Deep mutational scan, measured.
Amino acid sequence: SADYSSLTVVQLKDLLTKRNLSVGGLKNELVQRLIKDDEESKGE
């Protein structure tokens, strides 16, 4: 998976916004949300 932890919070929020995901929470939560979304989209 992508190394989201190396991105800035601003970059993470931009990715979340593009996916229509919540941008609330700490950086670690944003990273986990993106990883979870990646895993769910692979399952389709």
Rank of each mutant, 00 (worst) to 15 (best):
S5H: 13
S5V: 08
V10W: 11
K27L: 07
K27Y: 07
E40A: 12
L7D: 00
K18P: 00
D37T: 04
S22Q: 08
V31E: 05
L16M: 03
L26E: 14
T17P: 01
V9I: 13
L15F: 05
R33H: 02
G25W: 03
A2W: 13
V31I: 14
E29H: 06
V31C: 05
E29K: 05
G43N: 12
L15N: 02
K13T: 07
L16Q: 01
Q32C: 13
K13I: 14
K42D: 08
A2H: 13
G25D: 02
Y4R: 01
Y4K: 00
K27E: 04
L26T: 15
E40R: 14
K13H: 07
L7K: 05
L30F: 03
S1G: 12
L7P: 00
E44I: 13
L30D: 01
A2E: 10
T8G: 05
L15G: 00
K36V: 07
E40W: 09
N20V: 04
E44F: 14
E29N: 05
L15C: 05
S22D: 10
I35C: 07
N20S: 07
L30K: 02
L7W: 09
E39R: 10
L15S: 02
A2F: 14
K18Q: 11
N28M: 11
V23N: 07
S1M: 13
L34N: 00
L15T: 03
L15Q: 05
S6I: 09
I35L: 12
D3I: 11
V10N: 14
K36H: 09
L21V: 02
L16A: 04
L34M: 03
R33Y: 03
L12S: 00
L12N: 00
G43K: 14
D37Y: 14
V31R: 05
K42Y: 09
E44W: 14
L30H: 01
S6V: 08
L34G: 00
K27G: 03
T17V: 10
S6Q: 12
L7N: 02
L16G: 00
V10P: 14
D14T: 12
K27F: 08
V23H: 06
A2N: 12
L7Y: 07
D14Y: 14
S5K: 09
N20K: 11
L16W: 00
K42S: 10
G25S: 02
Q11L: 05
L30I: 04
V9D: 06
G43H: 13
G24C: 15
D37S: 11
K27A: 05
L26G: 14
L21Y: 01
D38T: 04
Y4M: 02
G43W: 12
Y4V: 01
Q11T: 05
D3H: 11
